[in-house]
Amino acid sequence: MRTSCLLLSQACLVLSLMTPVSLLQAQTLQVYTQAWPPYSYYIEGKLTGYSTELLQAVLQEAALDANYTLISWNRAYQHASTEANTLLYTTTRTPDRENLFEWIGPIGIRKLWLFKLKERTDIQIKDKEDLKKYKVSIVRDTSSLKLVMERGFFPREQIDEAPTTASNVKKLFFKRVDLILATNGGANYELSQLPYPKDAMEPVYLLNDEFLFYFAINKKTEPVIIEKIRHAFEKVRASGLIETLKKKYMID
């Protein structure tokens, strides 16, 4: 009897010591993102982009497996904010989201630019008051739209909403709007996919650059997994990969 108890105690000790390793081997991280070039998008059947390549390097360093799902931003955010062992990217770290996730990063600065057609010399923006003269298109259900609405940069009736940055760029060339709101990398990528000169569109006003991009992890995720990712990110950042990828994808 004493021998059986001793063996059972030893077995429990071994299992407790193995738990973190076993957990990491058995756990597959569920990763959610949206189609948002140049940060995350499919090309020739492969998920790629600035944030995608960076995250893949981090998870490889952390020795973690992941399932990637590219869906609408609303659905991606819903999954990541409610399900354990999930990661969301590319995510703006804002005060209202601060306590909802564990944050890994930063992975970049969110610079929101207003773009116009270069030929539209009638559009002149010197300060925020000038914004109220023009119609702008912004991707719906984003922190960018929320920021614009909360701070009253544009009258509500002059804000047009679109599903993607690609839609916004097309609206600009069809002259359905005067301005679009986008990151420099996002706007340049979408322009490169259209039959227009590279300089046909230009940034005219930096609307906001106070927030940063991060990887966001659901708080119910196992702590050992979060710490593995956090440690791996620091190693990848020290390697210089972030700057390399910024040049590759023309991220400012």
Rank of each mutant, 00 (worst) to 15 (best):
R75M: 05
W73I: 05
G49S: 06
A84K: 10
T48S: 08
L47E: 02
A66E: 15
T69W: 07
E53Y: 11
A62S: 07
A84E: 07
T90V: 13
T90Y: 14
K46I: 15
N74W: 13
S81P: 01
L87T: 00
L47S: 00
T69I: 14
T90C: 03
Y50K: 08
H79K: 05
I43G: 08
A63E: 11
G49E: 09
T90A: 10
S51R: 09
L70W: 02
Y68C: 12
L64V: 02
Q56S: 09
L54Y: 11
D65F: 07
A62C: 01
R75D: 05
L59F: 04
E83G: 02
L55A: 06
A84N: 06
V58P: 04
Y68L: 14
A84S: 10
I43N: 09
T69G: 01
H79V: 02
R75S: 12
A62F: 00
A63L: 04
L64M: 06
A62W: 02
L47H: 10
K46C: 14
W73R: 07
E44P: 03
S72H: 03
L88P: 04
N74F: 15
L64A: 01
L88M: 05
T82I: 06
L70F: 03
E83K: 10
I43H: 12
W73K: 01
S51H: 09
E44K: 13
T86W: 01
A80Y: 13
A80L: 07
D65K: 12
N67D: 13
A80W: 10
E44N: 15
T90R: 06
G49P: 13
L64Q: 01
K46N: 14
T48F: 13
Q78N: 04
Q56R: 12
N67Y: 08
S51K: 11
E53V: 07
A63M: 03
Q78L: 01
N74Y: 14
Q60K: 06
L87I: 02
T86M: 00
A80N: 05
S72M: 04
T48N: 04
R75V: 12
S81V: 05
L55N: 07
T52A: 12
N74V: 15
Q78R: 05
T82E: 13
A80G: 00
V58N: 01
T86S: 08
T69L: 11
K46A: 15
N67K: 07
T82S: 09
Y77S: 04
E83F: 04
L55T: 13
I43R: 11
L47P: 02
I43M: 12
T90Q: 11
A76V: 09
Y89P: 00
G45W: 12
E61I: 00
Y50W: 02
L87C: 02
G45I: 14
N67F: 02
E53M: 13
I71E: 07
N67C: 06
H79E: 07
Q56F: 03
S81R: 10
N74T: 15
L59K: 01
L55K: 00
E53T: 06
E83S: 09
H79S: 01
L54Q: 08
N85Q: 09
K46S: 15
S72A: 08
Q78K: 05
N85E: 12
E83Y: 02
T86R: 00
E44I: 13
N85Y: 01
L64F: 06
S81G: 09
